[in-house]
């Protein structure tokens, strides 16, 4: 966010945090009774830490997932002023989804915040309902698995991922009609073990983003045409968190070796604005849709390259001269030439 777009309220929040950093920065286990051992001690593993002893494989996948980072991710900490902005706790350190209810929003918790979206956040069943963990089937295992079909439902993910209509976008897509749900794409079954992965790749996984979107360019009678299509995402591209953006650029192709490389020129941005960006409209690309753009011929330009970049923070360092190679991630690149 550029300085001029920063609301004064944000500055107020920032000023207040400077004083709080000391007390908020070090994650701690508040639920531990006074005098208990350090949190790393196996003997006092509790909450989601206890699951690791028997579900080491799942634990390992989860530990590398965005969910494990929800409270410690440096970008989240920066934007939330180390969670001095308590509005950010709700989904980044939530109570169990099953406690607030499927189809409801989650609420913040007090204990084990540093674990972010942990096992209990998704699996924990309320003590009032007998406790145990939500699973695909009832089981006699020590963790008391209880069959809860809602565990795998999009509305479960929607407790945190539906502030910007992701579940509705999915429902309106062909995937919704086919019953191919969030977990089919984000928790694929490992053919070796027959189990679903908890690594939950998203915008950070290049291969997944590449599979979401197609980029084509062709030469028409009097202009170049660029086409982007959302072919693989089960929702808009991008979706959810408003900081994500997909940008299409073009530039003349340097056809001779050693010729200077031209600067990228912007064609189209796919992004939903933050609520204070009242001048912008939602340009995210719905599932299954395509958009075409015409680029006029220019004298002396016989070939062009077109590229699609994915950006996890919305603003360019220099909006007048964006440098996607340095500030975003290349997803696709195509070339077209005049015959």
């Amino acid at each position: 966010m550029s300085a001029s777009q920063r609301t004064i309220a944000l500055a107020v929040a920032g000023a207040a945090t400077l004083l709080l950093v000391g007390s908020f920065f070090i994650p701690e286990r508040d639920a531990a009774p006074a005098g208990e051992d350090a949190p790393t001690s196996a003997a006092n593993a509790h909450g989601s830490r206890a699951c690791a002893a028997c579900h080491a494989d799942v634990q390992a996948e989860w530990a590398g997932s965005p969910h494990a980072l929800a409270f410690t991710d440096p970008e989240v900490r920066r934007l939330s002023n180390d969670f001095a902005n308590q509005d950010c706790l709700d989904c980044h350190a939530p109570l169990p989804v099953f406690e607030t209810g499927i189809g409801q929003r989650v609420l913040p918790r007090e204990t084990d915040r540093e674990l972010g979206v942990d096992c209990i956040a998704c699996h924990g069943l309320p003590a009032a309902a007998g406790g145990g963990v939500a699973a695909k089937r009832d089981g006699a295992a020590p963790c008391a698995p209880r069959m809860r079909a809602e565990l795998s439902a999009p509305e479960h993910c929607g407790a945190c991922h539906d502030q910007h209509g992701t579940v509705g976008q999915w429902r309106a897509s062909r995937f919704g009609a086919e019953g191919k749900t969030c977990i089919d794409c984000h928790m694929p079954v490992d053919p070796a073990t027959g189990k679903r992965s908890h690594a939950m790749p998203g915008g950070g996984a290049l291969a997944l983003v590449q599979s979401a979107i197609a980029l084509e360019a062709r030469r028409d009678a009097d202009h170049w045409t660029v086409v982007v299509a959302n072919v693989g995402a089960g929702h808009n591209f991008p979706t959810d968190e408003r900081s994500r953006a997909g940008d299409v650029f073009w530039r003349p192709l340097a056809t001779e070796a050693g010729a200077p490389v031209a600067a990228w020129r912007h064609v189209h941005r796919m992004r939903a604005p933050y609520r204070h960006e009242t001048g912008l409209t939602d340009t995210t690309l719905p599932a299954g849709e395509r958009r075409e753009f015409a680029i006029p011929f220019e004298p002396g330009v016989d070939a062009i390259e077109v590229a699609l970049f994915y950006k996890r923070t919305p603003y360019w360092l220099d909006p007048a001269a964006p440098d996607p190679d340095a500030e975003a991630r290349l997803v696709h690149r195509v070339e077209v030439r005049k015959p």
Binding site: H46, C54, A127, A128
Partner: peptide, 26 residues
């Protein structure tokens, strides 16, 4: 080793699941 770790975990699990689920009625 794994067995004892699991046993400890098991012993703690009851409290674990209670810990992070809503408090019992007063």
């Amino acid at each position: 080793r794994a067995c004892s770790a699991a046993a400890i975990a098991l012993a703690l699990l009851a409290s674990a699941c209670r810990d992070r689920t809503p408090a019992a009625p007063p």
